[in-house]
């Protein structure tokens, strides 16, 4: 995923900051990664290289920890996140069908983010509301009994909301000119 303008600087500063706070001894690796992710939302390749350099450990070890634990993500999260539950109960009643629909509509695979960083798609293990299966978490809101039609509905809501916002934005701009 290409970095946005000015992102490189933010990454470097955050890493230096966090390393300064926690120190560079090896057992701090997981907490450092956790904090970097909290700050940036994900672990950019650049950040992992910086950490490896400063901790004087091979970059592959950092990458190893980052990919071993499910908590860490290597893609930036989208502005809106879809998490499709793939617990047993959801899978049984068509969780994969919902996931397919998202993948088809957004043209990305699970674990990826759309190029405009608007949406990201993930699969999660059981969110604990098996009675509503299949379940999708839309920005932490639970959507139950999700069919492909509902997927279209969810995306359409975001689209129309987005359009509304841009309209409002242009109106405001227009107003200031007058």
């Amino acid at each position: 995923m290409p970095l946005l303008e000015g992102e490189e600087e933010i990454i470097c500063n955050s890493v230096t900051d966090i390393l300064g706070k926690l120190g560079t001894s090896r057992e701090k690796l997981i907490p450092v990664l956790q904090q970097v992710q909290n700050k940036l939302g994900y672990l950019p390749t650049l950040a992992m290289h910086k950490i490896a350099e400063n901790m004087k450990i091979p970059a592959v070890d950092v990458y190893g920890i980052a990919t071993f634990y499910n908590q860490f993500r290597l893609n930036p999260p989208g502005k809106h996140q879809f998490k499709v539950c793939m617990g047993t109960a959801c899978y049984m009643v068509g969780g994969n069908i919902a996931l397919d629909s998202f993948e088809r509509r957004l043209s990305i695979k699970e674990g990826e983010t759309t190029p405009d960083r608007e949406f990201s798609l993930e699969r999660v293990a059981c969110v604990g509301c098996c009675t509503l299966a299949p379940v999708v978490l839309v920005d932490e809101e639970v959507e139950g009994h999700v069919t492909p039609t509902r997927v279209d509905g969810i995306l359409l809501t975001f689209e129309t909301n987005g359009e509304k916002k841009t309209e409002e934005g242009t109106e405001e701009e227009g107003g200031s000119e007058v």
């Binding site: 057992e27 956790q34 071993f68 634990y69």
Partner: peptide
């Protein structure tokens, strides 16, 4: 925990608490 199924196994759990791979 950072989310790894294998960390439910006790020796893996302890490894991860010590800051290593589980």
């Amino acid at each position: 925990g950072s989310g790894a199924f294998v960390c439910g196994e006790e020796s893996a759990l302890i490894n991860s608490m010590e800051g290593k791979m589980g």
